[in-house]
């Protein structure tokens, strides 16, 4: 039940309620006591959507079209869901600065409240995945080791063993997952932003996603231990090779220069 109530607090949950309410006939609607509350929610919700629409027309419509139907400069947003908006705007990728191989993560432009309004508006255009609640991506009840195995099967090929990122074709890249909000990681798996494929709950279950996030927290968090010392970017043999040449052989050559150098001679007086 806790899960449900937490969901209800969410703007998008209210939308579901709204749709349900619309489906009901007026008589049934009047007969239920909570309906009046739903009505109050509904007004609040429509206000949120209204605010979101305003933000949308200023910040997004030029590329995504006035009603989110998409243009040549930006894809349609109908049915992408609140999770996609929360991810794209919440990580600063949207609004985009310039076209390129890939839209990178930037400074976030909107406040979380504004992002929620935008998300509510986009969600009202067509049903899509909702923004996940905290217990979905929290560490509680997660199996880190299973998450590791899932990460290596599904994620490591692009994002590297511990999420340091990697290259894709023609200048595109899988970004580093360091310091990324677990919520955004969850949303990315769910919605598949840009060229990333999606991993919907039907193929990568909610528990799977939770495990993956717990694994990432364990191996790529602020407190992650690197027992051997400097992590050298966690990129594998290339950075190790550079380190061995520059600091290993470099130090040894410096030592060799000292060993072979002539000792200072006494000045002739």
């Amino acid at each position: 039940m806790k899960k449900l109530s937490a969901r209800r607090r969410h703007p998008l949950a209210a939308l579901v309620v709204l749709l349900l309410a619309l489906a009901c006939t007026g008589g049934l609607y009047a007969a239920f006591a909570p309906a009046s509350k739903a009505q109050a929610d509904e007004t609040a919700q429509s206000l949120t959507i209204e605010e979101g629409k305003k933000l949308y027309s200023v910040g997004c419509a030029s590329c995504h079209g006035t009603d989110g139907q998409g243009t040549s400069d930006g894809p349609s947003l109908v049915g992408v869901g609140a999770a996609a908006v929360d991810f794209q705007v919440g990580t600063g990728r949207m609004p985009a600065q310039q076209p390129g191989a890939q839209i990178p993560r930037k400074k976030v432009v909107y406040s979380q409240a504004e992002i929620d309004q935008l998300a509510a508006y986009i969600a009202s255009l067509g049903a899509g995945p909702a923004v996940p609640t905290e217990e979905k991506y929290g560490d509680e009840g997660a199996d880190i080791a299973k998450g590791g195995e899932l990460f290596r099967t599904n994620c490591a090929q692009c994002h590297n063993f511990t999420g340091k990122g990697g290259a894709l074709t023609h200048g595109k890249f899988a970004p580093s997952l360091e310091g990324v909000d677990p919520k955004h990681i969850y949303e990315a798996m769910q919605t598949g932003p840009q060229n990333m494929p999606s991993f919907p709950d039907t193929t990568l279950s909610e528990q799977n996603k939770k495990d993956i996030i717990a694994y990432l927290n364990a191996v790529n968090g602020d407190e992650t231990e690197s027992p051997g010392g400097l992590e050298l970017g966690g990129l594998g043999p290339v950075s190790e090779g550079l380190f061995a040449w520059i600091f290993g052989l470099g130090a040894l050559i410096a030592v060799a220069v000292w060993v072979a150098a002539r000792t200072a001679k006494a000045k002739k007086s």
């Binding site: 899932l150 099967t153 599904n154 598949g192 494929p197 999606s198 991993f199 919907p200 039907t202 193929t203 990568l204 279950s205 799977n208």
Partner: peptide, 19 residues
Amino acid sequence: MNTNQPLRASDVAVGSLTF
């Protein structure tokens, strides 16, 4: 591979990736 369950056609969404 993730759930160790047989895949249904309806599980696989456009744009998704599964092993």
